[in-house]
């Protein structure tokens, strides 16, 4: 059995988890076994519909709604043991990063994080993963009986078919040593790693007061907002928008970089983007070498035109 752990935000299953679900179902097919999903917490969506992604059964552990890595890892590991899972799949998301290593230790199961493709099972179990901050890939063999894979967001397309899953709900409890004192969420902000399109801007914007046109472009594309390191360091934009080697690493379908020269450390965080558009007034900006499309021009003129053209076309 292949067990897939599904993340939920306020009761809704995350997109990256649906990708992991499809991935897990494909791994199960490859191994000639079945795929089952595990959801911890109470969710609003109809879990039987997850059968469309290729899982036969969804286990729901209800009553546990505050994430705790230690407690959740125990629940996942117990479910894997109980179902005799040969593979456990996570999404390489915030909670996946907290959980997968703990489950790996509990099950003494080799873990590959940041997987970008289905495993090669022709001779053992070899997983391709992103390394050197997106500049290369490594093929890593898992030697243990149980294998754990965490899948990079946006690396595998969720495939929808027909089907309905059997939902088995049981009550669970955990005891936590961590007290959550407070939670703050920026309203309306799109999670960067979940965004299919990201609009990002750098020092070329000259100051935080000029971000209105960037936000407008992001809005018309329903895109996440990002920035370069100097912009975050100068407090023009919040740190969580900083993409790059020491910030957030993203791999959207479309990355639009405005007024960013493209230092190697910035590229390390965005080079897995499927399509890169660079807008910069300096034709010598190194970013153009890594781009698919480029415009050499003044952002203050190009961006409003681009926003207008997108609005007109939609």
């Amino acid at each position: 059995m292949v067990l897939i752990y599904l993340d939920n935000i306020n009761g809704a299953i995350k997109k990256s988890s649906l990708e992991a679900l499809s991935y897990g179902a494909a791994v199960a097919k490859q191994l000639g076994t079945d795929a089952q999903a595990l959801v911890i917490g109470d969710v609003s969506s109809d879990l039987s519909a997850l059968g469309q992604y290729g899982v036969s059964k969804v286990h729901q552990l209800s009553g546990v709604n505050e994430f705790d890595a230690q407690g959740f890892a125990r629940l996942v590991a117990d479910k894997a043991t109980e179902g005799n899972a040969s593979v456990v799949v996570f999404s390489h998301s915030l909670s996946g990063k907290a959980l997968a290593p703990r489950v790996s230790v509990r099950l003494k199961a080799g873990l590959v994080t940041g997987a970008v493709a289905l495993p090669d099972t022709s001779n053992g179990f070899v997983v391709k993963k992103s390394v050197f901050s997106g500049k290369a890939f490594a093929n890593v063999r898992i030697n243990s009986a149980i294998k754990i894979v965490s899948l990079n967001p946006n690396a595998f397309t969720a495939v929808l078919g027909a089907g309905s899953a059997e939902v088995v709900t049981t009550a669970a409890t955990i005891s936590s040593n961590v007290k959550i004192a407070s939670v703050s969420k920026s309203s309306g902000a799109r999670t960067l790693t979940e965004s299919e399109i990201v609009v990002s801007a750098g020092r070329g914007m000259k100051g935080p007061e000029n971000w209105g046109m960037i936000e407008e472009l992001a809005d018309v594309l329903n895109a996440g907002l990002a920035c370069s390191r100097p912009v975050a360091d100068a407090h023009w934009r919040p740190h969580h928008e900083h993409v790059g080697q020491t910030g957030v690493a993203i791999a959207p379908n479309l990355y639009i970089a405005v007024g960013i020269s493209g230092a190697i450390q910035h590229l390390a965080g965005v080079n897995r983007s499927k399509t890169i558009v660079v807008i910069n007034k300096d034709p010598e900006a190194p970013f153009f070498k890594a781009a698919d499309y480029g415009i050499v021009g003044d952002a203050f003129e190009v961006i409003p035109k681009l926003t207008a053209a997108l609005k007109a076309g939609s």
Partner: peptide
């Protein structure tokens, strides 16, 4: 529990397609 078998580089980009700043459409 794991061992690295090999490394590979991502496929090279085809090169940037430049669009004129006056022709955003």
């Amino acid at each position: 529990l794991t061992s690295t078998v090999s490394f590979e580089m991502p496929p090279a980009k085809a090169g940037v397609k430049l669009v004129d700043a006056e022709n955003v459409a």
